[in-house]
């Protein structure tokens, strides 16, 4: 992952729900309550880069007390409703509506939570949707019009990784089509 990777930066900025374990002074504006301290256990949304650090770091310098500043919970994007919908039919869920960087966010969350079940569901989702993506990519690459017959809804639901995959599959099909048309010369 490169320092300048835009997708990584955007993933870092995704908001995740979390709760502070302690009362934080001067942070009341996060809860629409400026000039008051942020009370403990108020649900707030923080960007992933900040929440991750605060969830891992120890509150006090001595290593005996290992309680972190806040507790992190799964974002709505990866809630049980979404995973059960993905279990039912991976192709029917527009992942882009959940998050533009769905898989990137999911892998980051799995690094924190180590959810075996979710890993299996996501892998199945990715692989199934990849096959479908390639089908549309080949159609688009091997014919001149970019309009995808019948798959508009599906294509609109592709998130960042799947878009990159579509592009690679499309370029491959396109290159070989260009060669095949030029072979007569």
């Amino acid at each position: 992952m490169s320092y300048y990777d835009l997708d990584a930066i955007l993933t870092d900025a995704e908001k995740v729900p979390c709760k502070f374990e302690i009362e934080v002074p001067d942070l009341g504006y996060l809860d629409n309550n400026p000039s008051h301290p942020l009370k403990a256990h108020t649900p707030v949304s923080l960007p992933l880069w900040l929440a991750e650090l605060l969830a891992i770091a120890n509150r006090s310098a001595n290593s005996q007390d290992s309680s972190p500043f806040l507790t992190l919970s799964m974002p709505q994007t990866l809630s049980s409703e979404v995973t059960s919908a993905l279990k039912a039919d991976p192709r029917a869920v527009p992942l882009r509506d959940q998050s533009h960087n769905f898989y990137a966010l999911a892998t980051r969350m799995m690094e924190i939570f180590e959810d075996l079940d979710m890993c299996a569901v996501l892998r199945r989702t990715f692989v199934t949707r990849a096959g479908e993506t390639a089908l549309h990519a080949r159609k688009a690459g091997a014919s001149d019009d970019y309009k995808v017959a019948g798959g508009e809804d599906f294509m609109r639901g592709l998130e960042a990784w799947e878009r990159a995959l579509f592009l690679r599959a499309h370029d491959g099909a396109k290159d070989s089509k260009v060669w095949m048309e030029g072979v007569k010369k």
């Binding site: 898989y103 999911a106 892998t107 799995m110 690094e111 180590e114 075996l116 890993c119 996501l122 892998r123 990715f126 692989v127 990849a130 990784w161 995959l165």
Partner: peptide, 9 residues
């Protein structure tokens, strides 16, 4: 992609 998804596990 599969490798990245499975990386943490």
């Amino acid at each position: 992609g599969v490798r990245k998804i499975g990386a943490s596990v």
